[in-house]
Design a protein around this nucleic acid. Structure first.
Lengths: 352, 352
DNA sequence: CTGTTAGCGCGTTCAA
DNA sequence: TTGAACGCGCTAACAG
């Protein structure tokens, strides 16, 4: 910057003012701009950050970059951030508490403007962020700390999906859910139980498994549930998309046909669920819109919005496809590759 | 830091030494550590960065966060980075040149230690990075600037896939490729052409389309190619996974059965390709290993490795599945959900 | 409107 | 081994 100032024949402070849009005489500004271009000068954001104690960067801390729910959500965040002239960097924790802690430390130490986080667990420590003045918005999962939060009604989604399985004729429904220290894992399990109770069915802990929201764990859990042939489940409600894939693989490996032998419904819709054979019934969440909402809340907080923590709920929507039609052998699609297959919502339940 | 020094009864310089592992008497170090814990002090990385001119952060600039090839690659990078005690932040350019430029500017202005980039185009400007001392490794696509690069042999992959389509009986193969200013887009097209020539077939520019590596563009391009029924292609070679999906959807929307009416083979394998109906033939790239390799090269450069730019090639592998078996109506899978379907590499070609 | 001065929080000289 | 002083590059305060 000193070089620019020298070349333009002004003081460094004036160069700074040009960069930050203060009042500068047009002629001088022109000279400075030329000097900047000539020298290829770029302001050092580190020094600026040190001085101003803020940056124009948001962090988006997500728990699984390979989960398309989160990548869609990120797109929503990015679009809002760009409109507000912020950059977004992504931090992938891979559901790992330690990695998450490291990233949060990086974020507060870098004094980023804000962070949107889907935390690995409810009681993640965000005190460092708060102290550094970093605004926090939680998405997908609630935190024990009071912060703005964007959610889907997990309880309701789980209830609707489980009720659907019951209506399809399932009488012994297993639940593969996420970590018990996440609100999504816990609420989806509670919705499942609630649905069973309302149908007058037994809640059997032997049919419930806590996993880590990943494919491998769910695969193992499903295999475990399937080893006892006398009490084999005839339906699975699974708490996210990655785990649903694990369950489907486990069923196939046991030679069980979906949905003829076992019905499956999962949380999180995926583009691919309508292209598989069978197509997969799932609870859809508006991931992109949730990302946008989180971005907007964050922008408001950074702009100085006061007031108590807010919660924004989005409604889940059950998309009924083939995997839940217990007892049926779905016909192969008419076209070899079927597009967006309209959900057969009118299909009649079958008893076993 | 001054507070810590005061509480520990030492100078700030001594605190700094404790943090950075210089020679400090054990007793003092103990006091300082306690003071740090008591005050919950965290070093300000901005100030440290300003002083040391380097950070322990890598950026991974990818062109499409929703593309599972890139997310798998990122995992490879992350694993290497963690082992070397670096953090990785992701920057999603969405194939947008301007967003890419903004991120690169952020990276050099933040003086990150290094960047791994899959650039939107060959001639992306990385001079700012070089000037700021940020090491660069290119993945997936070559740059015109000389930097370490990790690639698969796109030309060969495209050739093998196209030859396979020819062997399956295709006589009029279209190619949907990426931007002409990317090496992947260009080389996959060249491999396709080469394969046609070797089979003594006509290279027809009317069958070639440049897109942006995204689903929508490929969908439109495929529809365009299908509008003329007299010269309709009987095979598609598609240059990446997102575009392959677009092509498949376009075919379905025209009532064309894959692979009975039209055969399809694409670049980039996806987990889902073995679960769809039909399953999809694809050129597989070792994305995770490529990420690891890129991370290792970057670490070496940061550690001071000199020498000319290196290129590390990985071999693509054609995974033959159903979508390329022209003229057939593949049987629905035995199990409703078929697992990892072994590739029927021995299937016999069919003539049309 | 512009220049001078000071300090953001740290690491690294130099002396002691 | 430790402390004092300096400066990384920038911007906010104050003078002019």
């Amino acid at each position: 910057m000193a070089d620019v100032a020298r070349l333009a024949g002004v003081s460094p402070a004036t160069v700074s003012r040009c960069l930050n849009g203060s009042n500068v005489s047009p002629q001088i500004k022109k000279n400075v701009d030329r000097a900047i271009a000539q020298l290829g000068y770029r302001p050092n954001l580190i020094a600026r950050g040190l001085r101003k104690q803020v940056s124009r960067v948001w962090a988006c801390v997500i728990s699984d970059i390979e989960n398309q729910f989160f990548t869609a959500l990120v797109r929503g965040v990015e679009d809002v951030a760009r409109a507000a002239d912020y950059s977004v960097v992504l931090c992938n924790t891979d559901e790992d508490v330690q990695r998450e802690a490291e990233y949060l430390r990086l974020i507060d130490a870098q004094q980023m403007a804000g962070v949107i986080i889907s935390a690995t667990r409810t009681d993640v420590d965000i005190s460092g962020l708060a102290r550094a003045g970093v605004q926090v918005v939680s998405v997908d999962r609630k935190l024990s700390q009071p912060v703005d939060t964007v959610l889907v009604n997990s309880h309701e989604g789980a209830e609707v999906a489980t009720s659907h399985l019951i209506a399809m004729g399932c009488r012994r429904i297993a639940c593969i859910t996420g970590r018990h220290d996440t609100t999504t894992g816990e609420e989806r399990l509670r919705g499942y139980r609630e649905s069973l109770r309302q149908a007058g069915m037994q809640v059997d802990p032997a049919l419930e498994r806590y996993c880590d929201f990943k494919e491998e764990g769910a695969h193992a859990a499903a295999l475990e549930l399937l080893t006892d042939p006398t009490s084999r489940p005839d339906g699975f409600f699974v708490a996210n998309n990655q785990m649903t894939l694990g369950v489907l693989k486990a069923l196939a490996s046991q030679g069980l046909a979906v949905p003829h032998d076992v019905a499956v419904a999962g949380f999180d819709d995926l583009p691919w669920w309508s292209f598989s054979h069978p197509t997969v019934t799932a609870v859809s969440q508006p991931a992109y819109d949730m990302g946008r909402a989180a971005g907007e809340m964050l922008a408001e907080r950074i702009a100085g919005h006061q007031g108590p923590p807010r919660e924004r709920y989005f409604e889940p929507q059950l998309v009924v496809r083939q995997s839940s039609q217990l007892g049926t052998h779905p016909a192969p699609p008419e076209s070899a590759w079927h597009v967006g297959l309209p959900a057969p919502r009118t299909s009649s339940p079958l008893s076993i």
